[in-house]
Write a protein that binds this DNA or RNA. Structure first.
Length: 555
RNA sequence: GCGCCUGUAGCUCAGCUGGAUAGAGCAACGGACUUCUAAUCCGUAGGCCGCAGGUUCGAAUCCUGCCAGGCGCGCCA
């Protein structure tokens, strides 16, 4: 539709030039968009305004010249010049009808595109250390990462979702130490629990499990041996728990990548040798420094400490090299906002090792403010007291949780109120949208019960010429905008674009529903309206699926 | 001190690759169920778009400087 209008404008401009009405035949890039107000028509272009400089004429005059030169098209009701020089097109209602056919035919594919040209993209998210259960912040990261992956895939990218497991290094040792000392404490051996260890109740549970499996003599082990056993067991158990909680949250990864494997395979050593060979590192104070400053970082960073231990940064460099070697053109990391200080050095390492800056992208997710009935939920990570992702999913449900996490731009902090997310009312946006789907399902089953439609085959619209009400045309216009919104969401990696879209579609549907009956004595009209609402149902379902939210047939 | 994010209606936020009259939900007030689900709808009211400059035919949107809040600035992860 937009392209058709664009061609009409361009043809008119050319004709105006040929007949001497315009001095120049240059065609600047114009926009065709749906104006905000109905009084401004169905589609609008700023062609005259962006041409003003080239044509050396006032925008309004150009607009009138274009309109005068314009061919009459059957689907256009009228054309107006308005405001500073917009050309507004008012379309016949029938111009919108084929869209319904298209949506019904494309079904689950409606909204998808080849925008990404099958470009391989990796989205890495959550990647929480296996030292404790996932909390609210991880939940937002999981919802965002998963939705971004879904949206990119729908827009034609070849997406792989990945979780990086930090199963090496100090925090795992700390985990082992924590469990070991709790175990000794439970056995009455020692009470001097170290201050820098994890204090959560889950550590006590793990200690009990280790004791049970190893038997009472286990406490006679040396600290070193005990810690090692505890570390291995605890990390594995916690990782299993994380996997389970994410699956229960509807998040399935294509790959789980172990940090330890970078050591075991020699990949990390290879990367360090590569850095040496390329003179990207130097020694100072007994440590090995990466010249990240030469690539946009504020300062150089240590990759090997003076005690010969590699840093977390070192394995991260190797990991990101490995990602690109696997063939991804673009690598997207979803991080919590508290890690933003890490972006420059990571980007520097990517660029230093031969990739361009835009092949590495970080989605920085701002913090979540957990509330209950308007007041903050007290949490202390130090004392190990926090609300876990599992707690939240158990309390409010997966759909409400995900929808809430995706309701705002991740650039903004998010207030997540457990009471609101639980409410089955208009306060809760997830039901507002899901209700549309359920309502339409209800209409459909009634229509089938009463044999008001000849069959259940709506792979194309029926009697669409009967759709003439303003609310109906408005609905189709919104439905027609879905692919564009998906593309925008994919281009910006912002899932809340889909959220906002679904809210506006739901609003338009509820308004229509309250004003017009779908099923009436008029069989032909009923068929037309069923076609329309069925198209709405499909778009709602497709949109919710991108966010990982279900579309219920009944509520 | 430096860096990133944010500042829009009483509250929570969209709109930010510049366009016409700045939108939605909640809260407030007034209405609509004999109907395909009222988990809904309709209406009213509510705005120096943090402040000050600049660029532009045109700025909530871009640039600069302030102000306020959040987060970060380790040979931690």
């Amino acid at each position: 539709m937009k392209n058709t209008v664009k061609e009409i404008v361009q043809t008119a401009a050319k004709k105006a030039f040929d007949t001497g009405m315009l001095p120049c035949d240059q065609m600047p890039e114009m926009e065709i968009e749906a104006p905000k107000h109905a009084s401004q028509g169905d589609l609008s272009t700023n062609f005259a305004m962006v041409s003003a400089g080239i044509q050396k004429m006032p925008p309004k005059k150009i607009a009138h010249t274009i309109v005068a030169a314009m061919e009459h098209a059957a689907f256009i009701e009228k054309v107006e010049v308005a405001g500073p020089g917009f050309i507004n097109f008012f379309l016949q209602p029938s111009a919108w009808h084929p869209k319904v056919d298209q949506i019904l035919a494309q079904d689950i594919g409606y909204g998808s595109s080849n925008f990404g040209r099958n470009e391989p993209v990796q989205v890495e998210f959550v990647s929480a250390n296996p030292t404790g259960p996932l909390h609210v912040g991880h939940g937002r990261g999981a919802a965002v990462g998963d939705a971004v992956g879904n949206i990119l895939a729908f827009a034609g990218f070849k997406v792989s979702k990945e979780y990086y497991i930090n199963d090496s290094g100090r925090q795992i040792k700390t985990l082992g130490t924590s469990v070991w000392f709790r175990l000794l404490e439970i056995s009455g051996r020692r009470g001097d629990f170290p201050d820098d260890c994890y204090k959560g109740e889950y550590i006590r549970d793990l200690a009990r499990q280790v004791l049970e499996r190893q038997g009472p003599d286990f406490v006679n082990q040396s600290d070193e041996a005990g810690i090692a056993v505890c570390a291995r067991y605890a990390a594995q158990q916690i990782l299993e728990g994380i996997r389970r909680d994410l699956a229960a949250f509807g998040v399935i990864f294509d790959k789980w990548f172990s940090e330890q494997s970078l050591y075991d395979s020699g990949r990390l050593a290879e990367t360090l040798a590569d850095l040496q060979a390329k003179d990207l590192v130097y020694e100072k104070d007994g440590a090995l420094w990466f010249r990240t400053r030469d690539f946009g970082d504020e300062k150089d960073r240590v990759v090997v400490r003076s005690n010969k231990m590699t840093t977390y940064f070192a394995s991260d460099i190797a990991y990101h090299q490995e990602k690109f070697e696997r063939g991804f053109h673009r690598v997207i990391d979803v991080w919590g906002a508290d890690h933003h200080g890490y972006i420059n050095r990571m980007a520097a390492s990517v660029v230093a090792l031969g990739k361009s800056r835009d092949q590495f992208q970080v989605i920085l997710v701002q913090l979540v403010n957990l509330l209950r009935g308007g007041s903050p939920v007290q949490m202390s990570t130090r004392a190990g007291e926090f609300v876990t992702l599992k707690d939240i999913v158990d309390e409010v449900g997966i759909d409400a949780a995900r929808f809430m996490f995706l309701s705002r731009s991740y650039d903004s902090g998010l207030d997540f109120d457990l009471e609101v997310a639980k409410q089955k009312s208009s306060d809760n946006p997830v039901y507002y949208v899901q209700y549309v789907h359920a309502r339409i399902a209800g209409i459909l089953s009634k229509a089938l019960d009463r044999n008001l439609v000849e069959d259940n085959d709506f792979t194309r619209g029926k009697n669409l010429s009967h759709l003439v009400e303003p609310e109906e045309i408005n609905l189709i216009k919104i439905l027609a905008g879905f692919p564009e919104q998906v593309e925008k969401s994919a281009a910006t990696c912002h899932p809340h674009v889909i959220f906002t879209y679904l809210m506006s579609l739901a609003s338009a549907f509820h308004a229509y529903y309250n004003r017009h009956k779908v099923i009436t004595e008029d069989i032909a009209l009923s068929g037309a309206r069923l076609s329309l609402v069925l198209a709405v149902k499909k778009v709602i379902r497709n949109g919710l699926a991108l966010l990982g939210v279900s579309a219920p047939e009944r509520m």
